[in-house]
Computed example of a mutant assay.
Amino acid sequence: MKTSIVKNVANIMIPFIQMFALYIMIFGHISPGGGFAGGSILGASLIMYRFIHGNEETCRKFGFRKLLKLVSFSLIGYGLLKGFVFVASFYGLNEIVPVGNVGTILSGGFIMPLNILVGIVVAITFYFIASLFEEGEIENV
């Protein structure tokens, strides 16, 4: 079923899908989108890569331990950023977090980095769920 035409078309499409997902995550605070929407698109591209290239090649490129470390660091980073914002706002130190100009890419304080971290967590979670449905287990590679 996985012919060379399907593999070639998928290899051309996957980078564009991933770039679109990053665009959705980065510009999510000034346009429709955000971390969850961009992460679900990115997760779909990872799932597409796994279905096209198979388990062995995908595990070499996106190993379970690598992805688990990335999810862990993203969750820790999210917690630290949100904790910093809560503490800074509690003590009246809102000037520390730059807000920027409305409508620009660097507006909204820490919303853009938080969207990126949420997108990473959502993408890898979707990928792990699809791997569990396909294989029944996640291999410790």
Rank of each mutant, 00 (worst) to 15 (best):
residue 3 T to L: 09
residue 3 T to V: 08
residue 3 T to D: 12
residue 5 I to Q: 13
residue 10 A to I: 10
residue 11 N to M: 10
residue 12 I to S: 11
residue 13 M to Y: 06
residue 13 M to E: 03
residue 13 M to H: 02
residue 15 P to H: 05
residue 17 I to G: 06
residue 18 Q to E: 13
residue 19 M to C: 10
residue 23 Y to V: 08
residue 24 I to P: 05
residue 25 M to Q: 05
residue 27 F to Y: 10
residue 28 G to F: 03
residue 28 G to I: 05
residue 32 P to V: 07
residue 34 G to A: 04
residue 37 A to L: 13
residue 39 G to Q: 00
residue 43 G to K: 00
residue 45 S to P: 07
residue 47 I to V: 15
residue 53 H to A: 01
residue 54 G to W: 05
residue 54 G to Q: 04
residue 55 N to M: 12
residue 56 E to K: 15
residue 57 E to S: 10
residue 57 E to G: 01
residue 60 R to C: 08
residue 67 L to C: 09
residue 68 L to S: 12
residue 69 K to G: 08
residue 70 L to K: 02
residue 71 V to M: 12
residue 75 L to M: 12
residue 76 I to F: 11
residue 77 G to R: 08
residue 81 L to Y: 09
residue 84 F to G: 15
residue 85 V to T: 15
residue 85 V to D: 14
residue 87 V to K: 05
residue 88 A to Q: 07
residue 89 S to E: 15
residue 89 S to V: 08
residue 92 G to R: 03
residue 94 N to D: 14
residue 95 E to S: 14
residue 95 E to Q: 15
residue 99 V to Q: 13
residue 101 N to F: 14
residue 102 V to M: 10
residue 103 G to R: 02
residue 108 G to E: 00
residue 110 F to H: 05
residue 112 M to H: 02
residue 112 M to S: 08
residue 113 P to H: 06
residue 119 G to A: 01
residue 119 G to W: 03
residue 122 V to I: 14
residue 123 A to L: 07
residue 125 T to D: 05
residue 125 T to W: 09
residue 127 Y to W: 10
residue 134 E to H: 09
residue 134 E to K: 14
